[in-house]
């Protein structure tokens, strides 16, 4: 069976799709890709739907050997990429042939990257999803992180006849910015000074930062009503503040319920910014209203839906004119003379 074989796996690599919906009431976390935009970029470059399962890599990457006739793979993320030892560009698709090795990593300036294969991985969904929740062992591959020697079966034995596409990284890379936050549900548990601290101070990402949550260090955020609430549901992007006043930003693997007050929530499109924040990095927060947050979320969805129209052919090697013509017909506006991007963080829209 056609497969990508994991030769070496980074310590934070797992399969993630758009998340596991509908099981929160049973205590099951949603999980799913931490950086929705990069996941969508990888998938669209591979010709897939934006939320299909990818390998999400964290800081270190993985290496793979192709055990199939050929495969079209795409990577989105600021990581070093090599094919059989030769540098290859991220934010584009690459045609791999049997026995070739793809090495990803380490990350260059960001944290998370996504590897997609055209047609997707041929694995059994667990509770309707290919997302991995390592803490509870729910997901494909036994709900574990990727391991060396593992085979990731693919639906396609050979890729569709289309030229590899590329995406200008400047389109999708987000420069660091203040994370936008809406207040609630328990902002009433904090003093006005506590809320002012959240939006006025600088916080540092500690080493305790993973898909479940990011612990920050900074000036303590003052509670008004104590730091215990009757446990309730934890919404996406929630910022909970335990007794020490140091905020914890909750990620896709967050527990479903919790007993610390939640001062606010990071808005949907800015969770991707959080996903790319490394330990040691400084973070600031900016308050927005729900209407602005809703508009930003809907704009991000339109942006992702429009990415397919902004791909261009990724260089001419091995392509015939018929395929290029087909690509033009499928993808609309393509600048055939656009210079190919060769990676490197200085061009990535900082």
């Amino acid at each position: 069976m056609s497969a990508l074989v994991v030769v070496a796996a980074g310590p934070g690599s797992s399969l993630q799709d758009a998340g596991r919906l509908g099981w929160l009431r049973h205590g099951v976390s949603r999980a799913g890709a931490f950086d929705r935009r990069y996941q969508a970029a990888a998938n669209i470059l591979a010709g897939n739907d934006p939320g299909l399962a990818c390998v999400e890599m964290t800081l270190a990457g993985d290496s793979y050997r192709l055990d199939a006739e050929s495969a079209l793979v795409a990577f989105a993320g600021r990581f070093r990429l090599r094919i059989d030892g030769e540098d290859a560009a991220p934010f584009r698709a690459h045609l791999l042939h049997r026995g070739q090795t793809l090495s990803v990593g380490p990350a260059e300036g960001e944290v998370r990257g996504y590897l997609a294969v055209a047609g997707g991985f041929d694995l059994f969904p667990v509770l309707g999803s290919l997302s991995t929740h390592v803490r509870t062992g729910i997901g494909p591959l036994g709900g574990r992180l990727l391991r060396a020697g593992e085979r990731l079966p693919m639906h396609l034995a050979r890729p569709p006849a289309r030229p590899p596409l590329a995406l200008d990284p400047a389109l999708v890379v987000r420069p660091p910015a203040a994370l936008r936050v809406t207040l609630g549900p328990q902002d009433g548990h904090f003093t006005p000074e506590g809320i002012a601290t959240l939006f006025g101070a600088r916080f540092r990402v500690t080493a305790d930062a993973d898909r479940m949550g990011y612990r920050l260090s900074g000036p303590p955020i003052a509670h008004a009503l104590g730091y215990n609430i009757v446990s309730d549901g934890i919404p996406p992007g929630a910022i909970q503040v335990p007794g020490d006043g140091q905020p914890i930003l909750l990620g896709p693997d967050r527990q479903t319920t919790g007993g610390y007050p939640k001062i606010g929530c990071i808005i949907g499109p800015d969770l991707g910014l959080l996903a790319q924040a490394a330990p040691g990095q400084e973070l600031t927060f900016r308050q927005v209203g729900i209407e602005e947050a809703t508009a930003a979320e809907l704009a991000e969805r339109r942006f992702i839906a429009g990415l397919a129209g902004r791909m261009r052919p990724a260089g001419a090697a091995g392509l015939d004119s018929g395929l290029l013509l087909e690509a033009n017909l499928i993808d609309g506006v393509i600048d055939m003379n656009a210079p190919e991007w060769h990676g490197g963080s200085e061009e990535a829209g900082q």
Partner: peptide, 18 residues
């Protein structure tokens, strides 16, 4: 009715375990 981001909200009936 408590805001919980742009994609969720909390409907709270009271406070306590009862």
């Amino acid at each position: 009715f408590l805001d919980a981001g742009e994609q969720a909200l909390v409907v709270e009936f009271g406070d306590g375990i009862d």
